[in-house]
Design a protein around this nucleic acid. Structure first.
Lengths: 353, 353
DNA sequence: CTGAAAGCGCTTACAG
DNA sequence: CTGAAAGCGCTTACAG
């Protein structure tokens, strides 16, 4: 039915080998012959069959992307970043959402054999990360995203949650805050733990002797509300709350508004991620911006790096989040003048449906 | 290197044909043999090579998704909807963003040969839609999304912009508005035209004799601001403005706020799409909600329909948008009491990174 | 129920 | 520079 390389060969009066060479630019072909072949191919509207090509050349020019989920801004940004690099290198993207379940993740990864040249995998929970060990064929190049490698031999990229949290605490301290509470994320989440660790370490470094105060949360807005309520109920409410992500920080804002507290007048609030909502709430949220698209792009670049460099075990690239100062803790209690505020370059709303 | 079907056959003491049958569940295999084969396959950690499978079976169990872009909520929702159906049917998704350019779209479509069993294509501009004619191999099943089929023979799905616009105008009229202006979208965009057409027709039907008033826009917020300004400068400012999408409606809100007009007190504003921002602006925006994930899901279901039903030329499925009444035109000038307001089921903010 | 064999559409050493 | 041939790893009539 469809036109194959044989048809082109016959029509051009050459062997299929020559057609293959002419089309792929591999091996040498007499200029006149090449031109004739290309002409015929074009006339016949010939397109190589990719499965056949993949089978014999053992390259698919496709990379697999295995994600826990396809919900929300985080994943769309990640995909966009990966897609951008992929396009630039003529690669295709095979997308698979594993839905968090370890079994499904395994199936998704298995189905990649013979379909992709490498995979980008994100399994942010401990369970997902652990199950990776058995699923990832050792021969398949892979880069982990926001995922702790159970065996420590895969290259990975992630957000520097530790450094980001330290930077935020430093900022709060520099603004004059002394009683800085932290609302943590889920304990089985790597990022959440890194941010907590950053908070603790920087607090110890910047305000030695001041005890940390941590209220548990689960990254959801509601848990931020509950944490804020508990903080207010305590004997000595903090003068600043740093939440492990924006969703919880926004929960804090709501709780404080309800309690009649002025933010940042009575209490400052800071988040992490810079989700689109962050700049829209009142007051707008001070937060650490994470460039998610860059995270994806970085992962793919690492995957594409020639073996021996990136393939070296455990290479790690980390994306540094950026402090974005907005109204929710726009305040200076300290004697020294503050540096200029960072402008929040608001992402433009897209004009499409 | 990797273990193949031959290895399994040898180890199990059967032919490769039997291994193939046992694994695929096609053709009959003695239960005892099947079990032995499956055992060996498991023990050897055998995974079929998909390219080989695709080449001989002529099925890839993959569907291609060709989009103009990967930016923003619209595409992430679309992908999510498609992905959901795909997962349910054991299909993979090959993602390609054509970046609006007709040439790139052609390349993307070509590269799909031998990689997918069918494609979902979105080319919302006239140029993109036109160029589709030459790129789509007639043998490749395809469903168009939000795209006018240049040849009218492909099944397609789209948003019922016409019906949605009529519903909104009907709502505005029922609320007592009489001078309803419309801010239109780009003239080369199919959706934009449908919404405009709905506005005109419903106005003619509901308020016979009242002349339509259309200010051009381009779907961007700024163009909404400009359109609103022009409307206010006219001799008889309208008492309601219906913008062809939310971004422009939000532009109108800003312009009116700046001009010192109360919304909805002095003038009502309505949009289309229900983007996440719509419920966060002040006042919250009355709009037509489009279920984009469902649009994607619907497209894939249509693609998967057995030939003869969906493959019938020009089958069309249309997603009906839903009226969401919020503060921006929460008002009743009419003598009759209004029905209960639609609750705005706000999408929950995700709690991850 | 099972196997031998052809074939899917390419690429790639190997000769010439 | 070019062609004949083997081979990539499967599936699928075709016999038995």
């Amino acid at each position: 039915m469809a036109v194959t390389i044989k048809d082109v060969a016959r029509e051009a009066g050459v062997s299929v080998a020559t057609v293959s060479r002419a089309i792929n630019g591999q091996g040498s072909v007499a200029p006149a012959v090449r031109e004739r072949v290309l002409d015929v191919a074009h006339r016949l509207d010939y397109t190589p069959h990719q499965a056949a090509r993949a089978l014999s050349s053992r390259r698919t020019h496709t990379i697999g992307v295995v994600l826990p989920d396809l919900h929300g801004e985080f994943f769309s940004e990640l995909i966009r970043g990966i897609g951008q690099v992929a396009r630039g290198r003529g690669l295709h993207m095979l997308l698979s959402s594993a839905h968090g379940d370890a079994g499904e993740q395994r199936v998704a990864l298995q189905a990649m054999r013979g379909r992709v040249d490498g995979v980008l995998v994100m399994a942010p929970t401990d369970e997902g990360a652990r199950s990776l060990a058995g699923c990832l064929a050792p021969a398949l190049p892979a880069v982990l995203i926001n995922t702790v490698d159970p065996e420590g031999r895969r290259p990975w990229v992630g957000v520097d949650g530790y450094g980001g949290a330290r930077a935020m605490v430093r900022h709060l301290v520099a603004s004059g805050h002394r009683a800085i509470a932290f609302v943590s994320g889920p304990g089985d989440n790597h990022d959440a733990r890194e941010r907590l660790r950053g908070y603790r370490d920087e607090l110890a470094a910047s305000l030695p002797g001041v005890a940390p105060r941590v209220e548990p949360g689960d990254f959801d807005e509601d848990s931020g509300i509950r944490a804020a309520t508990r903080l207010l109920d305590g004997d000595e409410p903090p003068d600043a709350v740093f939440a492990a992500n924006d969703a919880m920080a926004i929960g804090c804002l709501r709780a404080f508004a309800e309690a009649g507290l002025a933010v940042p007048g009575d209490i400052a609030v800071a988040g992490f991620d810079d989700i689109p909502l962050a700049r829209l709430v009142h007051p707008a949220l001070t937060t650490m911006r994470v460039d998610i698209a860059e995270l994806g792009a970085c992962a793919l670049r690492l995957l594409l790096q020639p073996a021996g460099s990136a393939d070296a075990e455990g290479v790690a690239r980390t994306i540094a989040p950026q402090l974005v100062v907005r109204g929710s803790c726009l305040r200076d209690r300290s004697p020294r003048p503050r540096a200029a505020l960072h402008a929040s370059t608001a992402p433009r709303e897209r004009g499409t449906p």
